[in-house]
Each structure stands twice: as C-alpha cells, then as structure tokens.
Design a protein around this nucleic acid. Structure first.
Length: 579
RNA sequence: CGGGGAGUAGCUCAGCUUGGCUAGAGCGCUGCGUUCGGGACGCAGAGGUCGCAAGUUCAAAUCUUGUCUCCCCGACCA
C-alpha cells in the first residue's frame, strides 16, 4: 500500500464528540467516521483491522469445529413472537413493516433463525452435534449508544450456536468454544479475564464472560482478593452478613406519620435514621405474578439475581397501579408487614434477614413503621417466602470469606449454556437411539468484533497515538521515506518496500511529499508496530532506522540487512501472540 | 425515556449577555516562493442556507416558540 494513494484522513484535533481514547483515536487515525449516533463507516485502515480480527475469529471457530454460514439480518418478527423475545427485547430491537404489512426485525442476535433452520433439517441424533456460526452486522436500538465502537447500534458480531443431544454434549461444545475464545483473545493481543456471568434473558444455566479490564469499560467485574473467584457485577454472589444482635429488647413495631416522604433519603432526613436502618420493599411484575423484594436501604436490588430466583421469567418494576393495589398505599410506602399474602412471592435479601431491627413502609400512604424486627413482624420463612442473595455486591462484601474487589472492563465475548429454551419452543427436536423425541440442548457464543478493535486501542495507546498488537494492526510495517523528493531516499524506500512485500509482509509505504515531521506524527498516530525510516541522514552512512512503535529508541541497520532484520522483527512480534 | 450541555467554514472554537454595516480566529485545503529528520514560514486565495421552521423587529448568528440532531450522567448488552 502506498500512503499517497490510500484514503487515510488523519486529524490533528481531538474530535469534540469523542470521550474515550479508542473513540478519539479511531477518528484521528482515519480508521472510521461517524454516520449517525452509534453507526460508523470503517475506512480502509479500520476495515483492514476488523478483517484481521474477523479472520482470527474465523480460524479459531473453524479449528474448534464450528461451521460458518450466514443468515438474514432481516428477520420475520413472527419468529421472535414464537419465543416471546419480541416482548423481552422490547424497543431495543429495530422493527419495521414491509410493503405487504409483515413485521420484520433487524437481528440483534439470531437464536431464532438458527434454531428454526435446525428444526427443519435435523431429525436424528446421528446428525448431532452441530455448531454453526456467522460473522455479521447486528442491530440494537440502544438506549444510549456511546464510546464509539464500544457501544454502537450497528456492530459486527460473531454468533455461534451449538446443538447437542445431551448435557454432556453441551459441556463439550461449550468447552470447545471457551477454549477457542481464549485463543482468539490471546492472538488479538488482548489482556482479558474470564468471569462467571448471568445468562439473563438468554435463558439457560451457565455462562462465562470474557472481559478486557480497562477504565472506559461499562462492565464491572468483581473478584476475590486472592483470585479464587471472579464474576461480573450482575452475577457476583455475596456472603450473607452476620446476624445483628439487638442491644436491648426491641419495643413493638410502631407506626409513624411521615407525610410526603417516600424515598429512603427523605425518610432518613425526616426520622434522623441511616439508610442501612431501612428496609426497601420493591414490587415487581413477572407476567401475571407480583413479587415483593426486600433489600436494605443502602443496598441495590440486582434484578438478574431476582430473575434467576423466580425461575428466569422476565420481570419489570410493577406499574404504579399494581403497587397501589398490593400495598394499599401510594408508591413510596410499601413495606413487608402483612404483604406476604398479597403477592405470589416475597423474596428477602440476606442482609435484611440479618438486621436486628429496621424501618419500613407501612403500606399506608404517608406512614412508615419503626422497630420492625425481621422474623417477628414479617415472616422469614413460609410457602412463598424466600431469603436469598438478591442485591449487588458492594464495597466491603465478601465471597467465601474473601474480600471482593471491583474493576471496570469491556465485555468482548460471552458464552452461554442455553439448554432447551429455544429448541423446545421452535421445535428443534430429534429422535434419540430409543426413538424418543427430545429437544436439542443448545449453547450460544458471541464475540463483539468491534469491541475487540476498540479495546485493543484502549489498551494500546500513548499521547502520540495508537499502539497496535501486530496481529490486528492495519499493516505490520510502515516504511517512511523521510525526504521523498530526494531521489536516492525515494528509491531506497521503494526497494525496501518491495522486498518486504516479496517476503509476505504487510507494508505501508509513506511516499507522500511532505516534511518528515508530519510523516512521523502520522506514523505514530496510526500505530503500525514497526517503522522503517529511510532518510538522507542515515542513508549517508548506508543505514536506515528501524523503530518499534512500542519503544522510544530506534536502531540503525545497514541497508543490505534491513529487509531481513524487519522480517525477523515481524516474526518475533507475531511469535509473542501465538497460542 | 428522565437529568445536563452543544449545534456558526472540512476540524477545534470565538461572536450571542446588551439585535445593527462585508460573520471571525487557529488548524486543514488551493497556488506561488522560501524551507525540509518530530505536525515550518511568507504572500495570495477558495470555503458559511450561523441545524431547521415559524415568530418579534426597520433590522436576527444574537430575542421568543416549536422542531431535529449530537454529546455527557442513569436502567440493557457483543
């Protein structure tokens, strides 16, 4: 590639609407341009990087026995209705009507399409297992697209779906993907951590998340100080707190008038109490059922954990009307006393059960109750009462007695054991050896290609620009002709360029007629791992300079040895990313 | 969707409070010259429906209303 003929619009100024390093550098290095919020055009160098990531993903998926296919991004909404995910995904899914009045969706993922296809073709256990994947654009109408490629509305995702005859088969398929993911991220030069994750509305029983630790990440990973445990924030399990002992006998529960103070903060201000003296009662709807969930006033309810406990059904905060119906009071005055009979389940966080005494809503508008003793004034056990871990882990929490620490990260991939949620609903069934019909046991496995791209930049950059891992850099080497209008310099640069090409190296030749300084700045901004400077200064001694982007010093190499030396360097850098 | 901020040259921004003559700067771009190893300098130029639409006014980038877009902070996910 000749720089003079390649479309690489670099920018000196920091774009006003880019916040994080990867977003700024993507724009500045001429890798991409924004079209609209959350949608980007990838320019030649950006696309080259993405293609290299895609190729690594493809190689490892194929190696793991998965087969690449491609399914439509435009999918009939009816498929999504059949699994109920049309509702669960809600407005996050782009929908539109075609000229015949059919509703369609732009695929945010593709379980339905893959599973339906398998349902039509696979009839016998002899055809299984099978693992299919695609690498295609996905569409999600996010609440808030942000951080450039980290959270966009259209992005490239590799999604794979495995179909097995039994749980053991799924375990194997899952492990193969898990291992493939480790290879993929290693080869892409990313540091990553694997944490336990919730499968959420994907359904299913097990999940791991691959996360690149960095400040601009939107995910929080939680890990034990001794490394014995790691999970994402949605999943991270916390130990129950020790039961508090009351200093003295607690007087009977007593109603207090708290006019217009419905929030924890307001009640504390009004009664002079602390948030951790409070018991929050939240009312959720799960289909037709109503759930009461109790957490301590200073804790935050984790809806993922709650979802798991009630069996995976989609839940939402109940509508105002439902809350008033259940509690008999306006929103803000719900409490646990006497409510167990009015809801289908009452779920109590461990920390609430451990309280000696607390303040709660009175289920009566403008009233709270103090001196409420869990177990005395409301049940901690019973047919529909469960004490469980339903809050987010926080500072000071432990897991198996080990202190929990928190770190930000970018989720670049996740693997799920799905089970039969989709196969059962969509009829992906097979006959086993006994002639019995069973639904396929499924797994699904996603990788965010653009997120690998963005996190590589987040991890690899300095004040001058990007520092790419060689495996996914747009080019491996840049040959900078420092004085392009000097015939000897230009010819030498050209020679080295051609020799490197001849050795199978991906090279960008900066043959532009510009001052040296400008070219150096651009080279650093682009982040190409190896730079060869060809200029009058060193040429006078028969040398060129070779410099690694990740190091500050360059070394002089005799022109005759230059190509061999660079090839050796390329191989050395690649070697470090081999698996 | 709630809360905050911003839309003026390709980019980064000033001007708006207190309406007024030809709408500005830096960077970038074009031409000429001098330069030429870490984003050079001089001269000459090109480039603007001031987001859009109404309204107020003799007069609107500036005031009013509406609207669209973008960014930041919160609930979803690759």
């Amino acid at each position: 590639m000749r720089y003079s003929r390649t479309f690489i619009p670099t920018v000196k100024e920091i774009p006003a609407d880019a916040e994080v390093a990867s977003h700024q550098l993507m724009i500045r290095a001429g890798l991409c341009r924004k079209v609209a919020s959350g949608t980007y055009t990838y320019l030649p160098l950006g696309w080259r990087s993405l293609l290299k990531i895609i190729e690594i993903v493809r190689e490892e998926m194929n190696r793991a026995g998965a087969q690449e296919i491609i399914v439509p991004s435009m999918q009939p909404l009816e498929l999504w209705d059949r699994t109920g995910r049309s509702v669960d995904y809600g407005p996050t899914m782009f929908r539109f009507e075609d000229r015949h009045g059919r509703m369609n969706a732009l695929g945010p993922t593709a379980e339905e399409v893959f599973t339906t296809m398998i349902a039509g073709e696979v009839k016998s256990y002899k055809q299984l297992p099978i693992n299919l994947y695609q690498i295609t654009p996905k569409f999600r109408d996010e609440f808030r697209p942000r951080f450039g490629a980290i959270r966009s509305r259209e992005f490239i995702m590799k999604d794979a779906y495995s179909f097995d005859v039994d749980a053991e088969g799924l375990d194997k398929s899952y492990q193969a993907m898990y291992d493939a993911y480790c290879r993929i991220f290693k080869r892409c030069g990313l540091e990553y951590v694997i944490v336990e994750a919730e499968s959420g509305e994907m359904g299913g029983s097990g999940s791991h998340q691959f996360t690149v630790p960095c400040e601009s990440g939107e995910d929080t990973i939680v890990y034990a100080e001794d490394g014995s445990y790691a999970a994402n924030l949605e999943r991270a399990a916390v130990d129950p707190l020790p039961k508090e002992e009351a200093d003295a006998a607690i007087p009977p529960a007593e109603e207090v008038h708290t006019p217009n103070v419905g929030t924890i903060e307001a009640v504390c201000g009004f009664l002079g109490s602390r948030p951790n003296d409070m018991i929050k009662t939240l009312i959720y709807s799960a289909g037709e059922r109503t759930i009461a969930a109790l957490v301590r006033g200073d804790h935050e309810l984790n809806t993922e954990k709650l979802t798991q406990i009630i069996g995976g059904e989609h839940i939402d905060l109940a509508a105002e009307l439902t809350i008033e119906e259940v509690t008999g009071a306006k929103v803000g005055f719900a409490g646990p006393m006497g409510i167990a009979d009015k809801v289908s389940k009452m779920i109590i966080d461990h920390a609430v059960a451990a309280m000696a005494v607390g303040i709660t809503g009175a289920n009566k508008t403008d009233y709270h109750i103090k001196n409420v003793v869990p177990g005395r004034d409301f049940p901690l056990e019973g047919e529909n009462v469960i004490v469980a871990d339903i809050r987010f882990a926080g500072e000071g929490d432990t897991h198996n007695g080990k202190k929990l620490l928190f770190k930000k990260g970018i989720e670049v991939g996740q693997v799920f054991k799905l089970g039969t949620k989709y196969s059962a609903k969509l009829g992906a069934k097979f006959l086993d050896e006994q002639g019995h019909e069973n639904p396929c046991i499924m797994g699904c496995y996603g990788i965010g290609v653009n997120r690998i791209f963005a996190s590589a930049i987040e991890l690899g950059n300095d004040s001058n620009g990007i520092i790419w891992p060689i495996s996914i850099a747009p080019c491996e080497v840049i040959v900078t002709s420092v004085n392009q209008d000097d015939e000897q310099v230009a010819r030498t640069a050209e020679d080295i360029y051609k020799q490197l090409l001849g050795n199978g190296i991906e090279v960008l030749l900066d043959d532009r007629v510009l001052r040296g300084g400008v070219k150096f700045k651009d080279a650093d901004l682009l982040g190409i791992p190896i730079r060869v400077n060809v200029g009058q200064k060193s040429l006078a001694d028969g040398n060129v300079e070779v410099k690694l982007r990740c190091e500050s010093e360059s070394s002089k190499i005799n022109i005759r040895d230059a190509t061999a030396k660079v090839v050796e360097l390329v191989n050395k850098l690649k070697e470090q990313l081999k698996v």
